[in-house]
Design a protein around this nucleic acid. Sequence first.
DNA 1: ACAAAAGTGTTCACGTTACACCCATGC
DNA 2: GCATGGGTGTAACGTGAACACTTTTGT
Lengths: 232, 232
Amino acid sequence: MVPDPATYPYARPALTVDCVLFGLDAEDLKVLLIRRKLPPFQDQWALPGGFVRVAETLDQAALRELREETGVEDVFLEQLYTFGEIDRDPRDRVVSVAYYALINLEDHPLEAGTDASQAGWFPLDPVPALAFDHRSIFTLALGRLQGKLRYEPIGFELLPAKFTLTQLQGLYEKVLGQPLDKRNFRKKILKMNVLVPLAEKQQNVRHRAAQLYRFDEARYQQLREKGFSFEL
Amino acid sequence: MVPDPATYPYARPALTVDCVLFGLDAEDLKVLLIRRKLPPFQDQWALPGGFVRVAETLDQAALRELREETGVEDVFLEQLYTFGEIDRDPRDRVVSVAYYALINLEDHPLEAGTDASQAGWFPLDPVPALAFDHRSIFTLALGRLQGKLRYEPIGFELLPAKFTLTQLQGLYEKVLGQPLDKRNFRKKILKMNVLVPLAEKQQNVRHRAAQLYRFDEARYQQLREKGFSFEL
DNA sequence: ACAAAAGTGTTCACGTTACACCCATGC
DNA sequence: GCATGGGTGTAACGTGAACACTTTTGT
């Protein structure tokens, strides 16, 4: 039950969002971190994030902070968990709604925004020491990503719109940290009927050019309504 | 990045918790609702919940509200999602961290607390009209419960400590809304080795007394570390 | 011609599904 | 003795895992 805020007697915790932004490049999965300009944790690495304003939703706040601090615009974004330990910020009671986000590094090179003196992509092992409880947030985000990858088609967010099956397999291997069998992987993913082959192949490779595919989102939604579930 | 709250220029949203408490009785799965004493949504049904205090964590706030409004003490509680739409409360900007909770109705009969004029258990179809965006919260909670039930052993939270395989199967059928094959269900769950048969049988039933089991939490954790995953 | 990655099928083991009858107990 | 739910095995089927060679392209 919600008492009338006009008569609400308690002090309010502050409310922030923090974002774990994952990107995939040719080598491996990376996470975006910001170097803090101010205390506490001055000059330490931290997740991009900031205070939620009263006139924006949580999702909007997360997108705004990502834009302001990293210049990133079009990302897949999903709420992760809300962190409310009492002492997670040494200055004040701050509750933070954490998000994870996925982006394709080939199409979106990083440009640091104005809020941060530095921003950079870091490989996952090891992740540098992080401010606040950001390591816990990061760890939870990675676990969620690994989990969701298995039963929802979110991996495509980390790839360019047109991709090869080898790229897709590589993505799964890098994120899950285990090798997969090429033939079985292809059989399984193609049988799902959510990938459409394009009338186009790889260019400028010094080996046999691979078929390019795109993920058919509409087809996926259609199948999902009939009880189909993506699983790898 | 988190600016110093001392110099923080923005108004703070209010922060609440709301709980979707599920209980299972002999007939079906039920949800606990509170009748609101005050406007807005006066006399409508709502989820138990209330404001988060600065000196308590989110989990503590959820447990406190459950205790105050329903008298319930020992529950399985897990954070669900944080709702931050701007107009979800007509009076003020209120962000709410939603939880879902599971309880065994046989061991814990309801006693309404002081905060609510009425509280009651409702079957799920149909759920009555709810205040605020509580229907969305409820719907998400039910989906989460159904999803988690399949790959985590949380169902036992809805049963008494000692239960029969038929009770367990009934729980799965009621929550997932589909019939299961008795022999296959038993084979599968027993093969997991997380149920221990007790030296005890049902009493006072007018048919063959069933074997009682308990869930072996320690064994489950042990198996889980070796890569085992509960699945039904 | 050689290096490099693309592409392709079959076999086997295992897990999932479907299915029907006898047993113990209380009334 | 009858009504009620408890308890059990097997066969067919489908899915997942293991595994190696030929093709295409650029240099």
